[in-house]
Design a protein around this nucleic acid. Structure first.
Lengths: 239, 239
DNA sequence: CGGCGCATTGAGGGCGGTCAATTGGTGTGG
DNA sequence: CCACACCAATTGACCGCCCTCAATGCGCCG
């Protein structure tokens, strides 16, 4: 059940067998979430953290004016709310964007394996640091990049993150988000997302039809996005 | 030297004396940074992390078009680059916004105290989670709030963060950032920052003269910002 | 076939950007 | 004590990216 998470961790460091086994053992049960169902809600005090096994999920906040901002997109292999282990009270909600399966890790189990395996604990810490690094990259994109570059940046990021967990096919991947949801990610209106996607298509860097995104010209896309993947920490070294 | 950090941690959990002592012991030396001097640079692989003892610092990224986005503001008591302990390679730079003093914690020392004191390790993990929560809040503000609300939100946040480390006087605090730097924080132009600050003054929620910001009407300011401090995790409980 | 959700398009408006000039405070040298 | 430089704050004019409102297409499914 934890193979995608382990694959993600092994991208950054070697993971000994005993750590893998105890990690697997810490998973208590699997729960299914319908599309558009909240997996965790703002204000909750979860007693377990959810590892996304299948599907796409998003962290978000709602404002009083009815607007929504998505602050993270999660793909299989990501812990969607590992931070609740120490943060205790949720400051935002998490929604299943598609049908999702989640592996539940009781906080007491997480406590036990991180106390036992200090190295594994550091890798879990690292995975929350990667989340933070992605947040920063989105901040840069939202604050200082025009919409076309911003959306190109998102495509680059999702491609690499999905590739890490084996969810790409050659140079294409499934992106099951509506344009309205993309707008909530990028801080744009649905209408503008639509126009910018058309502009991206016109650049011929990607083919984007329905849920399928295919990168036709990676150098060109990377140039539009001014993309540097350092923040994803894709190098394996002792941590 | 570590009193402000300890104060920050004690806001979230009790810190036993032996943890305090070993934390203090892990600080190797103190270094001074001039205003506008980079404390750490993108691409660096620091062997030590810096605890900000005095002054204001900021994490930022530069884009090829010459624009800059600040992704975090750090105040005394904050570790500016604790994440480099596990992340190894810096994906962004950190600049001293004012004259700063920083306490240097060699990563080997951090490794030792987090291996020895699992609880202290969790508190340091937590402090990086708070950084991430702040990133998310900024994402919401940049993506979905108009500039006036966004800047009001920043004022609320900085007031509470500075209050935690005792750097407020009653309802006012020093904010030694130029309007250009605030623009880089908020993703706005200098000109617009200026206009929005004037608008905020006109609301009579704050008095903002030079470096000094005084909150005149907290409820009104909080309402403008739609401010909920949950994300700062200001409650003390076992972690 | 009709309903529904999502993508797409058009028209018009506003928030925030750029460019450029002016003000004002502070520090320095004559 | 004043001239000058310098930096940050402020203001004005104009522009454009992106927003809102609203309608239309389009594929899927009961």
């Amino acid at each position: 059940m934890t193979s995608l998470l382990i694959r993600k961790l092994e991208q950054r460091d070697t993971v000994p067998d005993d750590e893998k086994q105890d990690l697997e053992g810490a998973l208590a049960r699997v729960k299914e979430f319908q599309a558009d169902e909240d997996m965790v809600r703002e204000g909750d005090r979860p007693s377990e953290s959810i590892l996304l096994l299948e599907g796409f999920a998003a962290r978000y906040k709602l404002l009083s004016n009815g607007k929504r901002q998505i602050t993270a997109i999660h793909v299989p292999g990501d812990f969607v709310d590992l931070h609740s282990f120490l943060q205790k009270k949720m400051d935002h909600s998490i929604v299943a964007l598609t049908l999702c399966r989640g592996g539940l890790f009781p906080h007491e189990n997480l406590r036990q394996i991180t106390d036992t395996h200090l190295h594994l604990g550091r890798l879990l810490w690292l995975s929350t640091l990667i989340d933070a690094a992605i947040h920063r990259e989105w901040l840069v994109a939202m604050g200082r990049r025009p919409a076309l570059n911003q959306i190109a940046h998102l495509v680059c990021e999702l491609f690499l993150r999905l590739q890490t967990v084996g969810l790409t096919q050659d140079l294409s991947f499934q992106l099951p988000l509506t344009q309205a949801e993309l707008g909530d990610v990028l801080g744009l209106s649905t209408v503008h997302v639509n126009r910018v996607i058309q502009e991206l298509r016109a650049s011929e860097a990607v083919v984007w039809r329905g849920d399928t995104v295919t990168i036709e010209d990676w150098p060109r896309l990377q140039e539009i996005a001014e993309y540097d993947p350092t923040y994803l920490i894709l190098d394996r070294e002792p941590r």
